[in-house]
């Protein structure tokens, strides 16, 4: 499978990466080079093979329903949450106005 400039532009938009027309054009051969190469996977007979779901056999552990059992994974840390924000006001994160 291969991509064209239009697809590259669409993918960039989906990934929220602004690219210029020239950049999109330059990416076409680069991505196709990689995609051509990964296409060899199609040769592999995978009939009856399950996709890998856990690389090392391990069971999903779950936690008890307890609030702030571990302070590292609990709430009540607004200052830490907002400390690195480019724009925080009145205890909120601020973003350019959204019209829904």
């Amino acid at each position: 499978m291969s991509v064209d400039k239009e697809t590259v532009t669409k993918i960039a938009s989906l990934a929220r990466i602004a690219i210029s027309d020239d950049e999109a054009g330059a990416l076409v051969p680069e991505l196709n080079n990689i995609l051509d190469w990964v296409d060899q996977l199609g040769e592999v007979d995978v009939s009856g093979v399950e996709p890998m779901s856990a690389v090392i056999p391990n069971k999903l552990r779950m936690r008890e329903d307890i609030i702030n059992a571990d302070p590292l994974t609990g709430g009540g840390v607004r200052d830490k949450i907002l400390a690195n924000a480019p724009d925080a006001e009145d205890g909120f994160f601020a973003v350019p106005k959204v019209i829904e």
Binding site: M1, I11, V38, P51, V55
Partner: peptide
């Protein structure tokens, strides 16, 4: 983004995870 996008997921991602099993 491309290999996960609609229509390509199985051909790329699922196939790759099966190869990973092998």
């Amino acid at each position: 983004t491309y290999v996960l996008s609609a229509g390509f997921y199985d051909a790329y991602y699922t196939q790759a995870q099966k190869v990973r099993t092998l």
